[in-house]
Every structure is written in structure tokens, then in C-alpha cells.
Amino acid sequence: MRVILDNLSKAFQNGDQAPVEALREIACTIEENEFLAVVGPSGCGKTTLLHIVAGLLCPDTGRVFFEGSVSNGRPQTAVVFQELALFPWRTVARNIEYGLEEMGLEKKVRKKRVKEYIDLVGLSGFERMYPHQLSGGMKQRTALARALSLDPLLLLMDEPLSALDAHTRMLMQLELSRIYEKTRPSVLYITHSIPEAVFLADRVLVLSPRPGRVKAVLTLDLPRPRTERIKVDPKFVSYLDTLWGILRQDGKGGTWGSI
């Protein structure tokens, strides 16, 4: 699915204070099957942008167009939230089943789909566990399976790996790119980490500090499937350097995740 973000702006009214401008005139296209990563300093409106595309927030100006969107009025999107938002009272399998229930699928079809995606993300054997019994990485996989099971044409992810320790995070980056290369939805991936963006994405969109504007878009020419070796590829390193250069122009305003 091709998704066109047309001139999106959003400001938040906070009590009697002057409105805080979160996003200004964001224009960008997520191409069919493209993995687009969005990076930017804290508070630059990354999450706001994702919420608008997910249909959870209305932009003040501008529109989001979904090309090739299918049926019942809803564009086929799925979200993996930063907080993961797994239902604590549902087991792994029942969490993944939630979206399928809301789609109105039959129980038999749901069970089959759930099993398929549990296998895909490597959670076999953990179907009947509750979220509080899972490690961070396993919760992450559950949230990912829940989103993927909806068979989305656009997958939205909001810093999904930020709560993981460094080692698990690296493993999950590999897992994510493996799963993306297998299922090939369009992806809008919000992250704090420049190396993560370069490792996963086809293109990186850089937002400026508040209000978020499109500062630069960098197309990455790196081979797929992505493996760990890419991180020592001279091209990978030069992309990091370019992105750091772009962001350095913002001065000391922003805070950044570690490499």
C-alpha cells in the first residue's frame, strides 16, 4: 500500500497556555512495500505523526491518503505501540487473537491465523502464558504478532524496541528485518536510534526539533536480507555519518539514543 502524507500539521492546546506546535507541514510518501524509518530528537512529534497515520488523532491541516486500501472503510493498518499495550488478562494467543475477533473472523479461522503468527515470531510453546510471565523480548514478539496477524498493508511501529536491553534489542532488530523481508508490508517505523533506523529501513526521514518538519530524507542503498555484517559495511557507516551531520545542525537542542 502506498501512503501519502499530505501537508500534515498538528498543534496541542494545553489549558490556557499557548498551543504547542507538534508537527508542521509534513509531506512524504511511504511507497508500496517500503520500510520508512522516522528519526528525530525527543519531542519532535514522531509519535504524533504515527498516531495521525494510524487514525488515532486528527491533523489540524492536511490529509493522509491510502492507495489501494481495501474494504469496510478502514485502511488496513496495524500498530505496535511503544508501551506494547498487551492485554494483561489475555494469554499470548488470546492477545494475538484480539484484532482478529474485531475483524469478525470465525473462531476456527482465528485459531489458525494465531498459530501461524505465533510460529512466525517464534513464540511456539508460550501460547498460554500471560504477559507478566514473559520477558521483554517475548512481549515484543507478541505485540508484533498481534499487529502482523491483521495482515496489514501498512505496519506502524512506535519505538517498539526502546524498552529492551542492548543485546535483546540487537536480536530483535534482526528478527524484525527477517519478518519484514518475509511479509513485506509498507512500514512506518519511529525510532530514537540512528543505527537502528539505518539497519532496518529503505529510507530514513529526519524530523527537526519541535515543531517537527521534514529536515531531510535519505535513501539507503543496502542489500537485503539485512544481516549483522551490514553494520561494518562502509556504506552503513557513511550513512550514519551523514545522518549525524544532518542532526548536528540542530545544535545541542535534542537528546539522542546511544549507538
Binding site: A54, G55, L56, R74, T77, A78, V79, F81, E83, L84, A85, F87, Y98, G99, E102, M103, R146, L150
Partner: peptide, 14 residues
């Protein structure tokens, strides 16, 4: 109620 859970449910069509 955790607002994140409500958000997640709405994003899945609830």
C-alpha cells in the same frame, strides 16, 4: 484503565 490499552483496542477496530 491504561490509556495505551484503549488506544490499542481502537487501533484494532474496537
Amino acid at each position: 484503565a491504561d490509556p495505551a490499552l484503549i488506544k490499542a483496542a481502537v487501533s484494532m477496530g474496537s
